[in-house]
Each structure stands twice: as structure tokens, then as C-alpha cells.
Design a protein around this nucleic acid. Structure first.
Lengths: 195, 195
DNA sequence: TGTAAGTGGAGCACTCTGCTCCGCTTATAA
DNA sequence: TTATAAGCGGAGCAGAGTGCTCCACTTACA
């Protein structure tokens, strides 16, 4: 693969991720994605023959991001557990993982490939997240009934875009809300361990 | 207005609300809305000449729902403050207010009526919510830096649909997450008052 | 029971979509 | 430097989906 082709491919994946996040929807037109990537439609189609191929690539990209964030914070856990724990949650929310999870059904319906997509999601490696949660429970940051899916659901909801509210009426309250979530988890951890 | 016309109008508003919530988007085709309401497209257009008219009606409908829930729980506050507080939050989330807030920008952009829509949102009566928060702060359920917009942002995020996750992989975790949010608010209330 | 009010769906004009084709440009190895 | 294969962009096509209107039909109700 020629170097310029590789660069274009990367541009496309990044543009697609941005747009999927902004619109919280996988159904962004190829024209729009190509234009954001600064590339012709033909180039987009050459690299990704259909929408499923593009989405798969974007999800893999995000997934690698999730794993990297978790590994990074786990490696600095002993330094300052509290900081590693809450830092990892903030950074996972910042990743903007929402469309990965909640755009899934639209994708599946649109493409008529429910089973394929589901299997794809299910095969994702949950071990890094399980390790993070294990550490969190152990240090009293998270309740013991917090499984990876509950945790993921929280991240997904918190990472949802609020374009109208944030842009027009109130400044971005996301960090504040994430801190409330973190405090809530710790409060429940105390309740479960003492009660 | 004839009785059957009135009934159709109500069906339409309800159908539109459902679809806006399910798709977290105001751009649902008139055909789809009409069909869900069990009504012809012409009937839909007769009652609501354009999309803005329909959205306005749906938002008013939701807004009345918000006020009703708050009034209801405030009136039963003294009976059991804790129950009234957390009950009101759960019920506000159940309302599914998300598209009202975060679909706003799409609507504004699509219709090219940003200012009109913004003014419309700003003129909404925030007093019921302010009274609820006042009581919450007073009883130590909410931190004093919780203003109505932060509170609303939390409700909006929690009420976001998670169609893919909930339908296919994990059972609905929303109640659990709402409880974490409530616990987080109380934990912060303690911190602010003592520190 | 007369009639004004209300109805639904076919159909029009239009926009936007995915996708291909092909003449042009450019990276790269010799 | 140059030959050439690899890669490129955008015009354009066929089709799907849209908002909206028209009008022959039905129905609530004075």
C-alpha cells in the first residue's frame, strides 16, 4: 500500500469517527465523510467497499483506544489509585464511545446484519475492563455489583453528546456529572461493604 | 373541532413523541409518524402545517409532563422526603426527555430557525424545577452547586435510549444508574456542607 | 337527514443517497 | 530522470425517500 493511500485511509477513519460521534449515528453519508476527510468519494469506496467495513474499522479504532486508556491507568495505579481510577473514567467518557454502543441497533437494522454485528460486539475482549473494575472494587471505589456492562452503560450515557444544551444554554457540565457518577459509585461501595 | 379530529390530533402528538424518543431525533418522516398514529399523511399535515409546529406541540406536552411530576412529588414531600426526592428523579428520567434537549440542535439547523427555537426554550418556566432543587438541597439530598441546568443535563443523559445495549446484550441498567446518580448527589451534598 | 368537517392515499416534484466510471496525477523503483 | 502501476477526484446515474397537495370519499352532528 502506497504511503499516501495509507494516510488517506487514516484520515477517513478519523473523520468517520468524528462524524459518528457528533451525530450519534452511523448513518452519515459517504459524501459527508469523504469531504470531512478531505478526500473524494471514490477514495472512500476504494478503502471501504460498504458501510459495514467502515463501521467495523471505526469500532476497532475506538476499542484500541479504550484498551490503551485502561492499560495506561492500570500501569500507574500504585502511584495514586484514586487518581488512576477517576482519571480512567474521565478519559473513557472523553473518548466519546456512545455511538459505538447505542448506534449499534440502527446499524444492525439498516444493514440487515443483526447477527453479524452482535457476534462482533460479543467477541470484544472484556478483560481489560474487568481488571480495572476488579481494582476499583478492591480499593472501595466501586460497589461489588458493578459488572462491566453496567459500567459500560454508565460511560456510554455520560459520553452522549449534548449539542444543543452545551452550545447554547449552559456550559459543558460533563466533567461535573462524571464526578457525581464517580462519587455515586464510591458511596454505593461503602453501603455494600458495610451493609 | 370535531371529536374525532381532536382524538386524531392527540394520537399524532403521542406517536410523534414516541418516535422522537425512540430515534432520539426530531427528523422522523411525516409518513412514519402518520402511520404510527394510525392516520393518513394529509391528516397530519392538516393538524400541523410544518415540522416546527409539531415539535413545538410535542415539547409543550413533555413540558407539562415534567411540571406535573414535580408538582406531584412536591405535594407528597412531607410524607417522606427521601422517597419524594428520588421518586421524582426516577420519574423524570422515565419521561424520556432526552430528545427535547439534545435533538434541539438538529431541529434548529434543519429548520434554519435557531433563534426562534432558542427563545422558545429559554422562556420555559424553570420555577418548578428550582423549587424541587431547593427542597433537595435543604434536606441534604443535593449539593448546593446543583443548578437547574446541571440537574437537567443529568436527567437528559440518563434518559438517553440505549436500544442496542439494552435489547441485545445487557438487561436495562437504567434504574441502577439513576440510583448511582442520586447517591452521587447526596455524597456531594455531604462534602460541600462539611468541607 | 343534509352538509360541513374531516379523512386517506395516490402521486408530483424534489433532494439526497450509494456507487461507478474514467481521464488525470503522483509515488516509487530502476 | 523516467516508466508505470497505484491511486486519485468528481461528474453523473439510477433509485429511494422526502414534504406536501389534491380530491373523491366518509362521517359526526345540528
Amino acid at each position: 500500500m502506497r504511503a499516501d493511500a495509507r494516510a488517506n485511509r487514516d484520515e477517513i477513519v478519523e473523520a468517520a469517527l468524528e462524524l459518528f460521534q457528533e451525530q450519534a449515528d452511523f448513518n452519515v453519508s459517504f459524501r459527508t465523510i469523504a469531504s470531512r476527510a478531505g478526500v473524494g468519494v471514490a477514495t472512500l469506496h476504494r478503502h471501504f467497499p460498504d458501510r459495514a467495513a467502515l463501521i467495523t474499522e471505526v469500532i476497532d479504532h475506538l476499542d484500541r483506544g479504550v484498551t490503551a486508556i485502561i492499560e495506561d491507568h492500570l500501569s500507574r495505579w500504585d502511584e495514586d489509585p484514586q487518581r488512576a481510577w477517576s482519571g480512567s473514567i474521565h478519559r473513557l467518557v472523553d473518548l466519546g464511545i456512545a455511538p459505538l454502543a447505542s448506534g449499534g441497533s440502527e446499524f444492525a437494522v439498516t444493514e440487515g446484519k443483526v447477527d453479524g454485528f452482535l457476534q462482533y460486539m460479543r467477541q470484544k475482549d472484556m478483560r481489560p475492563m474487568e481488571r480495572l473494575l476488579g481494582k476499583g472494587v478492591q480499593h472501595g471505589f466501586a460497589p461489588s455489583d458493578l459488572d462491566p456492562y453496567r459500567f459500560a452503560a454508565g460511560i456510554v450515557l455520560l459520553s452522549r453528546p449534548l449539542p444543543y444544551l452545551t452550545a447554547q444554554i449552559l456550559p459543558d457540565q460533563r466533567e461535573w456529572l462524571v464526578d457525581v457518577y464517580i462519587d455515586g459509585l464510591r458511596a454505593r461501595a461503602r453501603d455494600t461493604s458495610s451493609g
